[in-house]
Write a protein that binds this DNA or RNA. Structure first.
Length: 310
DNA sequence: CGTTCAGGCGCACTTACGTCA
DNA sequence: GTTGACGTAAGTGCGCCTGAA
């Protein structure tokens, strides 16, 4: 490896002397700092002492290093605190290359690396530890970005489908209204049938309501004239049409007919969600309710063939 | 063979320093 | 010269594993 000859101890020592701005201290001083039996916690820092800094911060984890014969006229400054030193670019480059090969350290490899770049094995271990943490953070950030992009795309798709669904529901409702108006113009049924089929149409349907008391449907009251005109056509007492009492949601238009087509099980399983369907005005992203907001009341088995096509 | 204990390691979290705008 | 943001070396605490007693 090309770096091997670069990172011998003497080189690192020279680097410290020349590049770490160590003033008139002899190499003896440095040698004293490389004593291998110093506290294990500070092997690394001991090799990276910054003699220029005379600020003595009270960091309990920093070993005070005696520096002898170092032009020191101040007694206090003869006791130097450990200072954190950045690894040199060459050391970092070497460690990076090693990290690319294998991001975990075997003990032998750690010692070997430490020798080659003139660091303490503990420093190498710490560097790998921090490097793994940084790598993990980057990976997590990438995954987050990817997931967020997926979410945004799905949400856009959902919003488009929701809008399309609303449009279709409105269309269905208008057509239904038209159909019933046509039927109402037909001859009256036999006297034996006291309740006209059209009577099933509850005036409480938001689009036909006259005595609408639900606050969020106040807007429909502006259409009182029209709805009162229809109210003489539609009877309001049919119990079969209680669904229309539900919150304003045009997707319930078909409910009466559809539920009659359901098997009993399907009916039971779906009733609850029909009865709790949220208002149109609500942003309805609830997972439990969402499917029903789009099914228009059609049987589930039918939806499978056309609704979830993508 | 099972248990205990020390030592090492990795990870998450934190602190403090160095650098730069 | 000061300050705040940011990157990073290193400390701390915890859990896990392993080998020796």
């Amino acid at each position: 490896m090309e770096g091997c000859e670069v990172y011998d101890d003497s080189h690192i020592t020279n680097v410290l002397l020349n590049n770490e701005r160590i003033p008139a201290c002899s190499s003896q001083v440095l040698d004293s700092l490389w004593v291998p039996n110093s506290s294990p916690s500070f092997h690394g820092s001991a090799s990276m002492v910054n003699f220029e800094d005379t600020n003595n911060t009270d960091r309990p984890f920093l070993v005070d290093t005696k520096v002898e014969n170092c032009n020191d006229e101040f007694d206090r400054s003869s006791i130097r605190p450990e200072k954190k030193r950045r690894l040199s670019p060459n050391q970092v480059q070497f460690l990076e290359k090693s990290f690319e090969i294998e991001n975990k350290l075997e003990p032998d490899r750690k010692i070997q690396l430490a020798k080659e770049i003139g660091l303490q094995p503990r420093q190498v271990a710490i560097w790998f530890q921090n490097r793994r943490a940084r790598y993990k953070t980057k990976v997590l950030e990438k995954e987050y970005d990817s997931l967020k992009a997926s979410y945004d795309k799905l949400k856009a798709d959902y919003d488009n489908l929701y809008a399309e669904n609303e449009s279709l529901k409105n269309e269905v409702h208008l057509l239904t209204k038209k159909l019933h108006l046509q039927e109402s113009s037909k001859p009256k049924p036999e006297p034996s049938d006291p309740i006209s089929p059209l009577d099933h149409f509850q005036p409480k349907n938001p689009f036909f309501s006259q005595d609408n008391v639900v606050p969020d449907r106040v807007a429909y009251k502006h259409d009182d004239a029209a709805s009162s005109a229809r109210s003489d056509v539609f009877d309001s007492d049919s119990p079969q049409q209680q669904h229309y009492l539900e919150p304003a949601n045009s997707c319930h238009v078909f409910e009466a007919d559809i539920t009659s087509d359901f098997s009993q099980d399907e009916d039971d399983s779906l009733k609850g969600s029909f009865l709790h369907f949220p208002k149109l005005e609500d942003e309805c992203y609830d997972d439990d309710l969402q499917p029903n907001s789009c099914n228009l009341g059609f049987p589930v088995q039918d939806q499978g063939t056309w609704f979830w096509q993508y």
